[in-house]
Amino acid sequence: MSERHEFHIACRAGADALNKHRPGTSAAAKLTVLAGRLIEAPKAPKRESPNASKGEWPTMREELTRKALQAVQVANAARDAGRMTDRDLWFVIDALFDVTHGLIAEDMSALLYRARQELKEHAPK
């Protein structure tokens, strides 16, 4: 399974989790859109791309974004398996947002923020 496909699955799982707590939220809709973008075939890089001469290595921002998404996927899977509560999931998303804000892609940071707010409203006290 490719990395893009894994991210697609993580985004879909995040959207499903948010829809369980609060159907029709904008964060869930954005996760669904992001999942659709990830499943599309990647575009070939242009030759004048700054990364082309580096053998297409990801930038630090891209790598941090990937790792943040991976952490969300792992936490959501743990919650779905019953090893983590909704409150624990909120702690993970909250910590990820606090640590990565300003370091990862802006749209992903905004997505983490919205997910954090949605989970905060619905997590048991």
Rank of each mutant, 00 (worst) to 15 (best):
R116L: 05
A15N: 02
A81L: 09
A110M: 08
A10Y: 00
P45D: 10
N19Y: 06
E3G: 06
L64T: 02
K20A: 12
P58Q: 08
M108I: 13
E48F: 13
W57Q: 15
A52N: 05
E118V: 15
V92A: 10
R66H: 10
M84E: 08
M60A: 15
R116T: 04
L64C: 08
G82R: 00
A95P: 02
E40F: 06
H5S: 14
S109L: 05
M84I: 04
D88H: 10
R83L: 11
H101E: 05
I93T: 07
R66N: 12
G55T: 03
A10K: 00
E6I: 00
E48Q: 11
E6H: 00
I104E: 00
G55Y: 00
A115V: 03
S49V: 03
R66I: 02
H101Y: 03
S49Y: 06
A78W: 08
K46D: 13
D16W: 03
A52F: 04
R61Q: 11
Q73S: 13
R37D: 07
L111Q: 14
E121H: 13
H101W: 00
A110I: 01
A15I: 02
A52Y: 05
T65Y: 00
D94Q: 07
E3L: 14
D88T: 05
P23N: 09
Q117D: 15
R4Y: 06
S109V: 08
E3V: 11
I39S: 04
P42T: 06
P58A: 12
A78D: 15
K46T: 14
R66D: 14
S2T: 15
D107M: 04
R4Q: 05
T25C: 11
M84N: 04
Y113E: 07
M1S: 14
H5Q: 14
T100H: 10
A110Q: 09
P58G: 11
L96T: 02
D88N: 12
T32M: 05
L34Q: 01
E121W: 12
A35L: 02
S2Y: 04
V72H: 04
R79T: 09
S26K: 12
A44D: 11
Q70A: 12
D86V: 06
N19C: 09
V92R: 06
I39V: 09
T65N: 00
